[in-house]
Design a protein around this nucleic acid. Structure first.
Lengths: 328, 328
DNA sequence: CTGAAAGCGCTTACAG
DNA sequence: CTGAAAGCGCTTACAG
C-alpha cells in the first residue's frame, strides 16, 4: 500500500503526467471531462503530491515559517492558533521554529531560509538593530509580529503598545488615582518598553511621579519582591506588562489583607486566560493576539501570492480594555 | 545575494558536488583535508542545503509532524515545547498540524503523510477505533502522545491516568474524606475518562458514593452550574480533570464564603501555570507534559534512525502530586 | 577517497 | 487543450 505517484495517476487516467499536474495547479487549463476524470482517480487512489518534489520543482512550498522565542507563553499560543487557522484557510502548512535565547539568530535565520518556506512570520522579544540586519536579506516576504518593521521591505502587525498604556494610565488618573505603579519585566522586551513609555508619558503629563519595578518571570522570586515592596508602599493602582505578574502581585496583596479593588486596583496587559481564572478577576488591556496572528498570516498570504501588487505595511490592530473585578 | 547552491560550493572548493554532499551526510567518508576545506567554504558562503531537494533525493526530510487538536490549551503548549527542545537536539525540524474537530481525520492524515515527514507525533483527544484505523497504514513511525497505542506498530508516551486518579482519590479517602466529587469535561476525552475510572474505582473500593458532574470548557457557563451545585451540595473534596475547571470551581466557592481548604479542598489535574497563579494555590496531580513531549520526540528519533532495531513501545511517564494551599 | 551519472517526484515553458 | 522534455538541487550506488 505505497503512496501513489503522479505517474500512477497519469497511467490510470490515460493522460500524461503534465496533465495531472495541471489539474492540480492550473485546473482552468484542462478540459472539463479530462479534469473530472483525473480528479476522480486522484480521489480514488488517495493521491497527494509529494511536498518536497513539488517544492523543488515550483520553488514554492506552500509552507510558512513561524519563528517564536518560546511557545510556553499563553499569548504566543494564542497567536499561533490565529496563524494556524488562517494558514489552513489559505492552504499553507506551518513550519515551527522555536528559538532559544542562546541560539545564534543568524544560524536560526539561515535554517529558516534553507527550509525553503514561502514566507516568514517572525516574532522576537527584542528587536535590535542586529535582528533587523539578520533579517534584511531574506528572499521571501517577512512579517514582524508584535513589533513594527523599520524596513519598508517587510510588513508588521501589532498593537500600539505605547498608546495603549498611555490611555489606560490616563484613564486611571482621571478617576482620581495618583499613586500608580508599573511592573515591568526584568528582561528587556521591546513591547514592554513601549508600554512603560506610554505609562511614563501619561504620568508626566499629569505631573505625577512614576514608579517602576522590574520583576523576573519566576513567580517565587516575584512574590518575595512584592512582599518587600508592599511593606513600604501603598499604590492605589498597579499596572503590569503581563497578566501573570499582575495576578501574582494581586495574590500577594490579598494575603497582606489588602482589599482589591477597594484599597488597591490591579490591571494586567494581554487578557490571557489567566485573567478570567484569577480571584478577583483581573481587569486587562486586551491585546487581541489571536487576531494579530490571524491578520499577519492573511497579510503574508497577500504578499506571497501577489508579490507585484501587494506592498508590505504596518498594520495596527485595535486594543480594548476589559473591565473586571480588580478595578472599581 | 542569492542562496548558494551545492554547485557553487563544489566549484569554489575544487571538488565535485558528490564530495560536498558527502561532507554533509557522511563526513567520515571524506579525507580530512578535503573535508575541512569544504566545510570552511560552506561556512564562508553560508551555504545551507535546500531542504526540498534533500528530502526528495534522500527520501528523508529530517522533519517530524506534530498533530494536535488545538494549541490553546496550556498543557499542549508545554508538550510542544518539550518536543521542540528535543527536536532541536536531534536536528529535526517541526511541521505543525492543528486539527479542528470538524476536520475529516482522514484528510488531515493524508496531508500529514504527503508532507513527507520522517515521523509523526500524534495527539488526539479522542482515540476511537476510527482514529486507529486512519493511522494504521502510515509509512513512517508514529508515536501517540497521551494515549496508549493499541497497535504494536506504533509507540506511545503517556501517564497512567487511571492509576493516577485512583491514587489521589485513595489518598483523600485515607485522610478521612467521604464526600469526594469529580468534575469531568462535558466533551469526551479519552484521558479524562480514564481519570474518572480511577476515581470511581477508589470510591467503590471504599464503599463510598460517587458524584460526577460534567462541565463545559466555557467558564461563564461553568460558574452558573457550580453555583447551583453548591446550593445543594457540600463536598469535602473536589477533584477536576483540568486545572482551569478546578480553579473556576474554587473561585465560585470562595465567593460563596466557603473556606478553602478548611471547609472544602480542591485538586486539579495537570499542574499547568494556572495552578501557581490561583488564589489559594491549587494542589495538583502533575502530569509532566513537557517531559512527555520530550521523551516522545526522543523515542521517535530512535525509531526513525534505527528502524531495524528500535521497537515501538508504550512508555509510562511518572506523575506526582504537588501539594499546595487548596488542600490541608 | 573521489567523480560521473542516474534518479528522487514533481512543474512548466515549449511545441503542436 | 495536451504531451515530451528539461530542470528544480540534492543523494547515492557504482566505478575507479
Amino acid at each position: 500500500m505505497n503512496q501513489a505517484k503522479i505517474y500512477d495517476i497519469a497511467g490510470a487516467a490515460g493522460v500524461s503526467l503534465a496533465t495531472v499536474s495541471r489539474v492540480l495547479n492550473h485546473p482552468e487549463k484542462v478540459k472539463k471531462v479530462t479534469r473530472e476524470k483525473v480528479l476522480r482517480i486522484i480521489k480514488e487512489k488517495g493521491y497527494k503530491p509529494n511536498a518536497n518534489a513539488r517544492g523543488l520543482a515550483s520553488r514554492k512550498s506552500t509552507t510558512v515559517a513561524i519563528v517564536v522565542p518560546t511557545i510556553l507563553r499563553a499569548s504566543i499560543s494564542e497567536m499561533i492558533q490565529g496563524i494556524a487557522d488562517s494558514a489552513k484557510k489559505y492552504g499553507y502548512a506551518i513550519r515551527l521554529f522555536v528559538n532559544r535565547e542562546t541560539d545564534n539568530p543568524n544560524d536560526v535565520w539561515a535554517d529558516v531560509i534553507a527550509s525553503s518556506v514561502d514566507g516568514i512570520l517572525f516574532m522576537s522579544d527584542e528587536m535590535s538593530d542586529d535582528t533587523y540586519h539578520t533579517v534584511d536579506y531574506t528572499p521571501v516576504p517577512v512579517i514582524f509580529i508584535n513589533s513594527i518593521s523599520k524596513s519598508s521591505k517587510f510588513g508588521s502587525v501589532c498593537i500600539d503598545n505605547e498608546a495603549c498604556a498611555y490611555r489606560i494610565t490616563k484613564e486611571m488618573i482621571s478617576r482620581g488615582n495618583e499613586k500608580i505603579m508599573f511592573i515591568q519585566t526584568e528582561h528587556r522586551y521591546t513591547v514592554n518598553e513601549l508600554k512603560e513609555k506610554g505609562y511614563i508619558r501619561a504620568m508626566k503629563e499629569a505631573n505625577l511621579g512614576t514608579q517602576v519595578i522590574k520583576s523576573s518571570g519566576d513567580l517565587s522570586l516575584n512574590e518575595k519582591q512584592f512582599q518587600e515592596f508592599l511593606k513600604e508602599n501603598t499604590p492605589q493602582v498597579v499596572m503590569s506588562v503581563r497578566d501573570s505578574m499582575a495576578i501574582s502581585f494581586m495574590n500577594v496583596a490579598s494575603k497582606h489583607a489588602i482589599k482589591i479593588p477597594e484599597e488597591m486596583q490591579v490591571i494586567g496587559f494581554q487578557n490571557t486566560r489567566y485573567a478570567e481564572l484569577s480571584n478577583p478577576r483581573l481587569t486587562c488591556v486586551e491585546t487581541p493576539i489571536y487576531e494579530i496572528g490571524n491578520v499577519a498570516m492573511q497579510k503574508l498570504t497577500e504578499l506571497m501570492q501577489n508579490p507585484e501588487e501587494a506592498k508590505p505595511d504596518n498594520t495596527i490592530v485595535d486594543y480594548r480594555i476589559i473591565w473586571r473585578e480588580s478595578t472599581k
